[in-house]
Design a protein around this nucleic acid. Structure first.
Lengths: 151, 151
DNA sequence: CAGAACTTTCAAAGATTTCTGAAGACTCGA
DNA sequence: TCGAGTCTTCAGAAATCTTTGAAAGTTCTG
């Protein structure tokens, strides 16, 4: 087995490219590469050499988007967290919100620009495209889930 | 027709949410809402009250990702640009690169973590998911193109 | 119920990103 | 080839985003 830490840092870099802030990306990578089932905030701070405040913020953010979850009841004083099953599908679903926002922006734009302007033609194509994606993306994700569940 | 400028600024805000820098987002929105077929850099700088340098940078960036294009040969000294047909489909296709990066990061992670670790299980799901998306997303986009072209 | 062990919050420092403006490069017509 | 008009580049200023560290808040245990 090669150097896990290095692979984790590379993963963090990729995640950061995707828009996560650096500390959050490193925390997420640590969850992904953890040897244990769940991890505590203190462990993360020590392992990554970042402040407890940063870890707290990262955990809050990652929980909000559904990538990690609190682990029910390990008889311990500390909170334990772990990566959620189906996290990536959840993440992509939530990006669907961006698709919806684009659709709505196009729609409002058409109303503002008037129906027969050049702008309306362009915005019409935009609305079509994002409307299509907004309908089809969830179906695609479901298709993956179905395929996975079929052992 | 309502206030086009306001709709454009709202659109710019949405685009900025999607990761474009503010000046670039405002330039893009201006392209979308333009009354004319093509637009020049100077017009953009004046209309948006931003520096020529910012406009230059924005045009370069938007050209690179395929959202706008230089208009062939309008007999004018200035360069003219316009939004490209199918720009949104192109944009989504290019985001496929992110999907690929996630797939590859997962793949490398599995190699580093060793096959029977908890990490490998998590990374395996990730690799499956992004692998699936990498295969299916282009097909989905093509499906939209086909639907559009069928008048 | 008090104290210890953790966690969260938040103001301020630090880091990073973005924008500007001016200098230089390019292009085209005369 | 010159010069007017336009575009690009880039160093530094400005704005924005992140992280830290310490104080306040919570929650368990004894």
């Amino acid at each position: 087995m090669a150097d896990t830490t290095e692979a984790a840092e590379r993963m963090a870099l990729t995640l950061a490219q995707g828009g996560l802030q650096k500390a959050t990306a490193r925390v997420m990578a640590a969850f992904m590469f953890a040897d244990t089932d769940s991890v505590t905030a203190t462990e993360l701070a020590e392992q990554l050499h970042i402040s407890s405040g940063s870890v707290s913020g990262a955990i809050k953010m990652l929980s909000t988007v559904g990538l990690i979850e609190r682990v029910p009841a390990p008889a311990s004083r500390r909170e334990h967290y772990r990566m959620r099953d189906g996290a990536w599908a959840t993440l992509m679903s939530s990006q669907n919100g961006m698709v919806q926002a684009m659709f709505e922006a196009a729609d409002q734009g058409i109303k503002a620009a008037g129906a027969d302007s050049p702008a309306a033609r362009r915005l019409g194509e935009m609305r079509d495209f994002y409307g299509f994606m907004f309908r089809e993306l969830p179906a695609l994700i479901d298709r993956w889930r179905a395929g996975r569940d079929a052992t």
